[in-house]
Design a protein around this nucleic acid. Structure first.
Length: 614
DNA sequence: AAGGTAGATC
């Protein structure tokens, strides 16, 4: 006979788990009381656990039930600690722990500590966390692998990689779950290189370990590495699941790699992979960030279940692609559907108002954040409001808004004002904004570049070179412009003045041709974005070397007629490139879609979706 | 009767 025995759940407990409301639970409790079953500590524990874990809205009630048996088991206490560690007020977990300690009955066990550590990870309070870690040591559970991986997870959440590392280093033979926790911890703290070393040293890796490493790369912005590792995962024939694909799609979104993203979409269909809410959301985000908003919305409407992530992604995508009103329509539907917006949703809403120029509507939504939804506006929201006023030229209101903000204006707010000053050519306010911006972020190249653009607009070359000199003195460098274009699933990257591409001869000839055709159509180079005070002709030459122009030329060479040219740029599109691209889309009769640092530009028949404001 | 590691909106 085996000594293994499984404790079957009492039928009344099964009944308690299937209750759907408080009244039914009360009935079950009465039954347990009458039959005296609640006096049995084991059944009492099961009952407490079934309420606490299956009915999180009745947490307070399960606490009362705990007190109804003076011999409550550690299982009952642990269940309540565990249930509270997942709820909005995780601090309550400690009440039960303290109660156990005070009466010495029952004693906390290794389970107790895994739940307490999770509570700390939820609370994000360093003092509490180190106190709990001390208790783990005091009770001698530091060698329990479950407790160890929870501790590593907790320190990673707190951003204390050194502490996580210390726990890890003291484990003589970490198993692969602990290794995976450490890989995640490193990636979260941007130590993705070390994460990879650990990952490579693992003798065996399950899909979770692979997914942890891939998402680590994706979250650190190392999107190409994420894709490379995903390919390796396939070559090693590791089982791919939804989590793998969500991370890969996120990498595609960052890169703007539409072909790769489409491949993932096809893979899902080919392998009959169930589209979970997060996978669907990742697909929407990928198509939106690659500029194919129609496809993104097809998926959106096709999803049965949608949560706040799904709605926010779709709304953010619409705003980013210039469909401000559609974004607001979606918000109305979201509210009708009973999904509550969060802070991120409001960033999308305010951006939607901004691109559509709907100032009053934006004000209304901004106020509703606090009044209707109890959400405190964050820096981003204030920045969006400055942008909202500034974009339509209401610069004074933007200025007033900044000065009346209840929080200290951050770089984003001044940056939005500065951009508005550039659009509406307000030199005085622009100078002020850029001075503030530089005070906050003395290495912010964007501030200097925008300011020198403002000066260059009025051909004030002395001031332009002053700005240049300040940049040089402070060691501020302009981030080199870089444009990416995908051709046949292959990603081609071009930097400013980049001549390194193997087909540069063809590209140069194409650039020449474009330049001639532009001139024939009456286009005049707007040389103001060139920061140097050089001769006009040289400036024109320098402009032709902007990375997006090189990428467009390459696209015209390689892509079939009728296929839109899609480009992802790391900076904002410059004014000259914008003007030139408008005409190129007309004379070459091609659609050109450019994603810049902020938003999309869909160029077609000589017009752009941004209407000249970006 | 229970516990450890991976994923989406900024």
């Amino acid at each position: 006979m085996s000594s293994f025995r499984r404790i079957a759940k009492h039928p009344t407990i099964c009944l308690a788990e299937s209750c759907i409301n408080f009244r039914q639970i009360k009935q079950v409790q009465t039954q347990l009381l009458i039959t005296g079953l609640l006096d049995d500590p084991r059944l009492h524990g099961q009952f407490v656990a079934s309420i606490a874990l299956k009915h999180p809205n009745l947490l307070d009630y399960s606490t009362q039930v705990l007190d109804q048996n003076t011999n409550a088991t550690v299982f009952a206490f642990n269940s309540l600690i565990r249930a509270h560690s997942k709820c909005p007020n995780p601090k309550k977990s400690f009440q039960f722990y303290n109660k156990m300690l005070k009466s010495n009955n029952p004693y906390p066990d290794n389970y107790t500590f895994t739940f307490l550590v999770r509570t700390c990870a939820q609370l994000l309070d360093c003092g509490t966390s180190s106190a709990v870690h001390a208790s783990v040591l005091k009770h001698g559970f530091e060698t329990d692998p479950h407790v160890q991986s929870c501790l590593i997870y907790m320190y990673a959440e707190l951003g204390l990689l050194n502490c996580a590392r210390k726990v890890f280093d003291e484990i003589p033979q970490p198993d692969f779950v602990i290794m995976t926790a450490m890989v995640t911890a490193c990636a979260k703290s941007s130590e993705v290189g070390f994460a990879r070393l650990l990952f490579d040293s693992m003798p065996q890796k399950d899909p979770i370990a692979w997914n942890a490493m891939i998402s680590g790369y994706a979250q650190c912005g190392q999107s190409r590495e994420a894709l490379n590792l995903f390919n390796l995962m396939q070559m090693e024939r590791v089982k791919i699941n939804q989590v793998s694909l969500v991370s890969v799609l996120s990498a595609c979104s960052h890169l703007g790699a539409l072909d790769q993203g489409r491949w993932v979409h096809a893979y899902i269909g080919r392998n009959n992979i169930a589209v979970t809410v997060s996978l669907g959301t990742a697909l929407i985000d990928m198509y939106a960030k690659c500029g194919d908003m129609n496809k993104a919305m097809d998926i959106f409407w096709g999803m049965k279940e949608k949560n706040v992530y799904t709605w926010s992604s779709a709304m953010g995508g619409l705003a980013m692609n210039g469909f401000g009103r559609k974004c607001l329509e979606l918000f109305a539907l979201m509210k009708q559907g009973g999904v509550l917006p969060n802070e991120v949703t409001f960033v999308s809403i305010l951006r939607g108002c901004s691109v559509a120029g709907l100032v009053e509507e934006g004000q209304m939504h901004f106020n509703s954040m606090r009044e209707e939804f109890g959400l405190e506006p964050l820096f981003e929201h204030y920045g969006c409001m400055v942008d909202l006023y500034g974009r339509v030229g209401r610069l004074n209101e933007a200025w007033d808004f900044i000065n009346q903000m209840p929080v200290k204006p951050h770089a984003g707010a001044w940056g939005a004002l500065l951009n508005a000053c550039k659009i509406h050519k307000n030199k005085e306010l622009g100078e002020l904004a850029s001075r503030k911006l530089v005070e906050l972020e003395s290495k912010n190249h964007g501030a200097y570049v925008l300011l020198s653009n403002i000066y260059a607009d009025s051909k004030n070359w002395d001031s332009v070179s002053n700005v240049r000199q300040t940049m040089k003195a402070k060691g501020v460098r302009k981030l080199p412009g870089c444009s990416v274009i995908e051709v046949n699933g292959e990603v081609h990257e071009f930097l400013v003045g980049d001549k390194s591409h193997p087909r540069y001869c063809e590209i140069e000839a194409k650039l020449d041709e474009i330049s001639k055709r532009l001139k024939l159509s009456g286009y005049m180079a707007n040389t103001s974005p060139v920061l140097f005070d050089i001769e006009e002709e040289e400036k024109e030459d320098a402009l032709c070397q902007h990375s997006e122009k090189i990428a467009i030329a390459f696209g015209l060479i390689c892509l079939k007629e009728g296929v839109p040219i899609r480009i992802v740029k790391n900076l904002r599109v410059c004014w000259d490139c914008h003007a030139a691209t408008l005409i190129i889309s007309e004379i070459y009769d091609t659609e050109i879609i450019v994603r810049d640092r902020n938003r999309f530009h869909h160029f077609k028949d000589g017009a752009c979706s941004c209407n000249g404001y970006w």
